[in-house]
Write a protein that binds this DNA or RNA. Sequence first.
DNA 1: TGGGCATTTGGCCAAACCGCCAATGGTTGC
DNA 2: GCAACCATTGGCGGTTTGGCCAAATGCCCA
Lengths: 110, 110
Amino acid sequence: MPKALRGTTLARYETRARIMKALAHPTRLFIVDELADGPRCVCELTTMIGADVSTVSKHLLVLKSAGVVASEKRGAQVFYTLRTPCVRSWPSCVEGVLAADARRARLVAG
Amino acid sequence: MPKALRGTTLARYETRARIMKALAHPTRLFIVDELADGPRCVCELTTMIGADVSTVSKHLLVLKSAGVVASEKRGAQVFYTLRTPCVRSWPSCVEGVLAADARRARLVAG
DNA sequence: TGGGCATTTGGCCAAACCGCCAATGGTTGC
DNA sequence: GCAACCATTGGCGGTTTGGCCAAATGCCCA
């Protein structure tokens, strides 16, 4: 039975893509990395990122909608936590890709 | 020294995001999954995906630009191979996210 | 209850994305 | 050579993204 991209199979890949897309932004990758060290409130993240608070808030909404992070209200502040720590291992795989590219580039150049 | 999203750090996250973005599409995730079982030519992938050849070709270009796949010409056909098999483990992590969501949904509903 | 802080939401605009069609370049085989 | 096939590239509309500003919401404390 050949694989094909329709029906139920398509739906599964769409769901996966939604999560991947949530991580496909430098700011959001930074947030994930930061939350891996523990919960952070929006104001802390905003300071580190150096963008408008509304921008950071929207990035967090994207991550939350994808199920990657969770939010918890403490008084006037909202703390975000990483819900799926395994995503943290992805960048190391990515670095592997980059390293391979660098090797290839050296081979081509040399 | 607090983390911050500027300069060299920003550049690293941008590079990572570029790779994540390459995978942030259902069709491209399907391609990666398919290539994990071995090389495939564009025509094979096109048949399975059921889209225009040009569309598939462009998706492959995106993956190739990100360093995720490599291409090799064999006669009139072009075969693509997965260059970084580790990306294949990502979806299982993603499934974990989805399972957690499903559990939570059941808790809320029940 | 009113002011101040933390966060979210809506709106706007430029840029990027995605799909198809049409046109082009390569390769095989007659 | 040319006809058929494989694949890539360019271009066009429709949709989505990402940033900021401005306004609204929620919470704490005086």
